[in-house]
Design a protein around this nucleic acid. Structure first.
Lengths: 146, 146
DNA sequence: CTACTTTTAATCGTGTACGATTTAATCTTA
DNA sequence: TAAGATTAAATCGTACACGATTAAAAGTAG
């Protein structure tokens, strides 16, 4: 790779910038609901499977407690979530969706869906990109840290 | 798209997580130098073209002054950069690489390069992904905000 | 049953991100 | 040239992100 160090050719930068663009897209679609992009990812995860521990949620979102704990607090303050300490094992905290989060699921996802469709990303592109990202992600994840 | 809302099929999530994995990779490669990933991107930009205004740097990195100003301060404290207010137009601040940054360019880029090669991402994958990301990024950028 | 280890969240410190506001310098135009 | 607009950085407030530490609860081995 000749000019590997040319900024605009850097894969890292491309991924970085694309992630930023996605954040902007989602931010504007989610703004009417007072949700941030990471908060939306939390809702996505819980809409799929509600009532999971903070740990499990963190694993599914690739987030540590240092990120998740304060974020969950904010989402509780805003009426999206509810926390419940396990009676059987008091170390565990289960996270549940509040009514508001179930009620607004349709509107939120529809709004986000429209925002994405407005970008007219082809299904083919979508799937190809998903596959490539999956491959690269797998390689990045399974690398042996020195 | 049937189960568009299934978490693991979400493109946004894939981009998000891949960006995170890249960050981790770069973080470990850059740690010996006391550099963060975004700081490395600043160096990449300046190695390509030194002595630019904060504004231009921000445009090239897609970062606002709210992010860049404190980051530049830290990099100045750590001896990577130098700041110089323009004499012709005192609003402008030019950012320059310090000796340290020029001297260590080789070692840093080599270390990062090795870390990436350790992931054995094929050149073909690399280029395909770059192209797809470019396309999607273009679409995301050129969407009309409502 | 007690000392030790492990597990789970919470907390802390540092470093991005970003929109909004502020401040100072420059430009524009009447 | 003086008032108003524009521009460039800096600053502020909020919200991630992550490694490290802490604290409490649960498991485990002698």
């Amino acid at each position: 790779m000749k000019d590997f160090f040319t900024l605009d050719k850097q894969l890292c930068f491309a991924v970085y910038e694309t992630a930023g663009e996605f954040t902007k897209l989602y931010t504007s679609a989610l703004q009417p609901f007072g949700l941030t992009y990471p908060q939306y990812l939390v809702l996505l995860a819980l809409w799929e499977k509600d009532g999971v521990t903070a740990k499990e949620l963190g694993e599914r979102l690739n987030l540590g407690t240092g990120t998740l704990t304060p974020m969950i607090s904010r989402m509780i303050s805003n009426g999206w979530l509810r926390k419940e300490r396990s009676k059987a094992d008091e170390r565990k905290v289960y996270i549940f969706l509040e009514e508001k989060a179930r009620r607004e699921k349709e509107v939120i996802t529809q709004n986000v869906g429209e925002a994405i469709q407005a970008c007219s990303i082809e299904l083919e592109e979508y799937e190809e990109l998903m596959e490539l990202l999956g491959k690269v992600r797998f390689k990045l994840k399974s690398r042996v840290p020195r």
